[in-house]
């Protein structure tokens, strides 16, 4: 069907190869969610869509932020802002492992020369009230993806079960391209008229955000924003299902979930500022989890979440 893939020469070529591959295999290619999230899983296309009975297949790049991982762009592997590639298919197809291995071939990993392994790694997100079983996938000893069968999200059992694949794009690309420092990685084609490296694109922002995340972010503001988002989320979900203006049933699961995402990010920022003690940490995580559960409860009352007039 497809020709032997060309070995990619840039970060973006790898992303494009993944996009093409999963488009060919029936996924809707979505765009990144327009909010700060800690991982691709937070995109509502994964979190919310893994709930309920409706079939789903989506793939997308998600910029992700982990403020505590910032190293001013100096560490060869660590970034406070990086990209994840995320695939979610519900119900998980029986050949998901083979599909996944195909995607590695598509980005130029020769299956005859490498050692690919599925190593137990159960996934749990305490902030999302979610867990699943699966593996981290190793290529020659390096973790290149996370492979998970979702069992529960937002406190709800997943039925049918979604299969989720998460690729850490920078790490994977560095490996495929043979680059030792992320900043040295070609972002576009090295022979392009204006060749750009990852450094050209992100070194400065890594510095700026590292300084802000660690030392400058105003913790009082962050704390207030956390609490506002938390309160806002609850208020949104307290609204009656029927919209008084249109008379339609409109449960605002997504707007509420946006506030949950916001609260989660504020928590991550507070954490990076080092103002959250170990015991407080648990309490904050519990508060975000409570929000994500409420959003999940709301989502399963919507059509996309499997609700139908007939069943109600």
């Amino acid at each position: 069907m497809s020709e032997k893939p060309q070995t990619p020469r840039s970060f973006q070529a790898i992303i494009l190869a993944l996009q093409n591959y999963w488009a060919q295999h029936g996924c809707a290619i979505l765009q990144p969610y327009d909010m700060e999230v800690g991982a691709g899983t937070f995109h509502p296309a994964t979190t919310l869509r893994s709930l309920g009975s409706q079939p789903w297949a989506a793939a997308y790049v998600q910029p992700s932020r982990r403020p505590t991982d910032g190293r001013y762009g100096e560490n060869p592997n660590r970034l406070q802002h990086y990209y994840q590639y995320q695939v979610l298919i519900k119900p998980s197809p029986p050949n998901l492992q083979e599909l996944y291995l195909g995607s590695l071939e598509a980005i130029g990993i020769n299956m005859d020369l490498h050692d690919i392994r599925f190593v137990e790694d159960d996934w749990e997100s305490p902030t999302l009230g979610a867990w699943g079983l699966g593996w981290e996938v190793w290529c020659d000893g390096m973790e290149v993806s996370q492979f998970t069968y979702f069992q529960q999200v937002g406190g709800h059992d997943c039925a049918p079960v979604s299969g989720e694949l998460t690729y850490g794009l920078e790490r994977l690309a560095m490996y495929v391209l043979g680059v030792d420092h992320v900043m040295d990685m070609p972002f576009n084609d090295p022979d392009a008229l204006i060749p750009l490296t990852y450094r050209d694109v992100f070194k400065q922002t890594e510095e700026e955000y590292a300084r802000w995340n660690f030392d400058t972010a105003n913790t009082e503001v962050l704390l207030r924003q956390f609490e506002e988002a938390e309160a806002h989320c609850k208020v949104i979900l307290e609204q009656p299902a029927t919209d008084p203006k249109t008379g339609k049933r409109i449960i605002m699961a997504h707007p509420a979930y946006d506030q949950c995402i916001k609260a989660s990010h504020m928590f991550n920022l507070l954490d990076a500022r080092g103002v959250i003690s170990v015991t407080e940490r648990q309490a904050y995580i519990g508060r975000v989890r409570a929000l994500s559960k409420m959003c999940a409860d709301a989502f399963v009352q919507t059509r996309a979440g499997g609700w139908s007039e007939d069943a109600a």
């Binding site: 119900p91 998980s92 197809p93 029986p94 159960d122 699943g132 079983l133 699966g134 069968y149 069992q151 997943c158 039925a159 049918p160 079960v161 299969g163």
Partner: peptide, 18 residues
């Protein structure tokens, strides 16, 4: 010790049983 469901089925196994 830990088992899971997959796809649309209800059978539980440690990972999908083929």
């Amino acid at each position: 010790p830990k088992s899971m469901r997959w796809g649309s089925g209800s059978l539980r196994w440690v990972r999908p049983l083929h």
